[in-house]
């Protein structure tokens, strides 16, 4: 018990002192996760909107595939990414392995199905009357799509937050495609795994605290946007 309390105490000290190593790891993590979330959002949001509103053969099959891909383990994506990015791989010529872009690519593969699926769910929940009302008030197809998009904004925001939470906390892809290089590809989760291996719990716990704090902050922000604060 004393060991745990000491660990938490030391972790707090590291966070409060803004330890250089801790800050560096957090910055890399945030940068990589934000990049992959933004790119996955840019791809997944329009794609999800299209799947939710279009009628085409194989739509249900596509949704089933997306739902299945949501459960893809990070190590599988790590392996797949390694096969693609290693020198002998299809994208080996780009020399991306053990770099931040490699982690970003892997994380995009991880969260693209999640963003798309949650987007489909968010749009499907929107009442059909919104589209009809926009059309009868003179909107064209693009303007009525914007109305639906606007009405689904909290669902979309939730999708983005869920995706960010997923990438910031994953370890498999960062480890296998990033290589846990100090100051370059070392993320919060890979650093925690390393510190655990070394038996140094203070930094690992400090990073854990930052992760939990981040998650809490994101949810707080979401509720703020949703207008739940102050009710």
């Amino acid at each position: 018990m004393e060991f745990l309390i000491d660990g938490i105490y030391s972790a707090f000290l590291l966070v409060l002192a803004l330890d250089q190593e801790l800050v560096r790891v957090v910055v890399v993590s945030l940068k990589v996760s934000a990049s992959s979330t933004v790119i996955a959002g840019m791809l997944g949001i329009p794609f999800g909107f299209w799947v939710a509103t279009a009628e085409f053969h194989g739509r249900r099959f596509l949704i089933t595939c997306l739902n299945t891909l949501m459960a893809l383990p990070t190590v599988v994506i790590g392996l797949l990414g390694y096969a693609l990015l290693s020198r002998r791989g299809l994208l080996g010529a780009f020399d991306l392995l053990y770099s931040q872009p490699a982690i970003i690519l892997g994380q995009i593969i991880l969260i693209l199905p999640l963003v798309t699926s949650l987007m489909i769910a968010a749009i499907s929940r929107i009442d059909e009357r919104y589209r009809r009302t926009a059309l009868t008030l003179g909107a064209n197809r693009r303007q009525s799509a914007l109305v639906i998009f606007k009405e689904a904004r909290f669902g979309i925001l939730a999708a983005i937050i869920a995706a960010y939470g997923r990438v910031v906390s994953e370890v498999g892809i960062s480890m296998m495609l990033g290589g846990n290089i100090r100051g370059f590809t070392r993320t919060m989760t890979t650093a925690m795994a390393l510190e655990y291996d070394k038996g140094l719990f203070a930094l690992a716990m400090a990073l854990g605290l930052v992760l939990v704090g981040l998650s809490f902050g994101m949810n707080l922000l979401f509720h703020f946007f949703q207008g739940k604060i102050g009710r």
Binding site: R129, Y130, R132, T133, T136, K150
Partner: peptide, 9 residues
């Protein structure tokens, strides 16, 4: 058209 149960943005 005004719906039976109009929806508000």
């Amino acid at each position: 058209l005004v719906d039976q149960n109009p929806i508000m943005f």
